[in-house]
């Protein structure tokens, strides 16, 4: 049998998270096929074929699938159930939406947010906001997984797997939620879940205007921008910048946290960070306790100075 991995893409480009999932699935020990599903996904399909270690790429290109609703994707996966022993997706908004629905239709328990693969049916996943890691064995007839991309390095991209078309299954989809409109955060910053450097701000920034200090520093560093839930709730930052238990999980080489206390639910999203820099007026803030480098100071003084000096140094 083999593994079917649902690719992550934004219709035009394949997300790097897909190559991370391929690397994660290597430990399953079975061939991996990538399913690229959506509208006008030819480019993404080509990018998937370049991921090293992929047996083949199957592309389903259908204008009706632009919004990639959970109802339709679950039916497509279901039509492939006899061809694969494992079905996987990235633990992003789409994977989390679709895979449990699909698993229920197969009558199997999925394993979500996998952070380590120990073979075909043994996996680690975080529970209690990452305060515990459980190792589970799954003896289901089919194994359904979502993979947390930040927990894995990407597979290399010098492969050349064959690309095949995949047909839309005949089964009509019952009542699906109908996509009306997207409210996209316009930003050209790197993707949070795969960025090498992340700069994030908390409620201490005090306004959407001041939050630009975080965005400026990030731009100097070519970094992704993140925020705490408190900052998002206060509308200083858009929801897709939230890091944590209910936001995104990150694993940068460097995480710079500014005016962030380090609540349990925030820490849940940053366990994969290699090094942490924290800037806070309170030396006892929980994040200051675990940061590799901590600077006690007022962000309103520190950040502009830091940004200016880094800009000079990096010559950008």
């Amino acid at each position: 049998m083999a593994v079917a991995l649902l690719a992550e893409h934004d219709l035009s480009q394949l997300s790097e998270t897909t190559a991370r999932a391929v690397a994660a699935l290597g430990a399953v020990g079975l061939p991996v096929d990538i399913l690229v599903i959506g509208a006008n996904v030819g480019v993404a399909g080509g990018q998937a074929a370049a991921i090293e270690g992929v047996r083949k790429v199957r592309v389903l290109d259908d204008v009706a699938l632009e919004a990639r609703g959970a109802e339709a994707l679950a039916e497509i996966l279901l039509s492939l159930k006899d061809e694969y022993s494992h079905f996987a997706a990235i633990a992003g908004a789409i994977g989390k939406d679709v895979l449990p629905r699909f698993a229920a239709k197969l009558d199997v328990s999925p394993v979500t947010d996998v952070i380590a693969v120990h073979g075909p049916n043994r996996f680690d996943r975080p529970i209690y906001a990452g305060n515990a890691i459980e190792t589970v064995t799954c003896n289901e007839t089919k194994i359904v997984l979502t993979i947390r991309p930040s927990a894995f390095s990407p597979a290399r991209s010098d492969g050349s797997a064959p690309i095949e078309p995949l047909a839309t299954p005949a089964a009509s989809i019952a009542d699906a939620a109908e996509f009306l409109v997207a409210h996209r955060t316009s930003s050209d910053t790197p993707d949070l879940s795969t960025a090498r450097i992340v700069v994030a701000g908390g409620i201490a920034l005090g306004s959407v205007h001041h939050f630009e200090m975080i965005e400026n520093l990030a731009s100097v560093l070519g970094a992704a921008v993140g925020a705490t839930r408190a900052a998002v709730d206060a509308s200083y930052a858009p929801n897709d910048w939230q890091i944590g238990q209910t936001g995104k999980a990150i694993a940068p080489d460097l995480y710079i946290a500014i005016g962030i206390s380090g609540a349990l639910q925030h820490l849940a999203g940053i366990q994969g960070a290699r090094k942490i820099v924290a800037i806070n007026t309170d030396p006892d803030a929980p994040l200051m306790q675990i940061a590799d480098y901590r600077l006690v100071g007022d962000l309103f003084e520190v950040v502009p100075q830091l940004t200016a000096e880094l800009e000079k140094r990096l010559n950008r």
Binding site: I133, E134, T135, I276, I290, D292, L295, L310, R313
Partner: peptide, 26 residues
Amino acid sequence: RLMVEKVAPPPDRAGGQAVGSVSELV
């Protein structure tokens, strides 16, 4: 359907060093 084999704490983060100035942080 899933067998929980074991539950372990996440790896410890030791905490690190205080940085004295902005230029050191740069």
